[in-house]
């Protein structure tokens, strides 16, 4: 838990001081990122099931897969 706390605080500090960074990928360059095949969670129900399969039969749990992606609209 201590590790989680340290990790969390460091991420927040790092990000807090970086508010004037200009986005290096412009919104009009995000066509590829908005493509449905470029999404980590393209089929959430299927992914969730495969993770369940592994969790039930393996000792490890947590940090499965990636999140996010997308067009960055709005």
């Amino acid at each position: 838990m201590k590790l989680a706390g340290i990790l969390l605080t460091s991420i927040l500090f790092l990000l807090g001081g970086c508010s004037n960074i200009e986005p290096w990928v412009k919104p009009y360059e995000r066509a590829h990122l908005a493509d449905p095949i470029m999404s980590f969670g393209r089929d959430p129900v299927a992914d969730s099931y495969m993770n369940h399969i592994y969790q039930v039969r393996e000792g490890a749990r947590g940090a499965e897969g990636g999140h996010g992606g997308g067009c960055g609209c709005n």
Binding site: F40, G41, P44, V45, D47, S48, N51, H52, Q55, V56, R57, R61, G62, E64, G65, H67, G68, G69, G70, C71, G72, C73, N74
Partner: peptide
């Protein structure tokens, strides 16, 4: 074998995927 917590948690996290802002 028991359904373990993180299995459900992952399902929950996937049920509400981390949305990129605004969408």
């Amino acid at each position: 074998t028991r359904v373990s917590l993180t299995g459900i948690l992952f399902a929950l996290i996937l049920a509400s995927p981390a949305a990129l802002a605004g969408v």
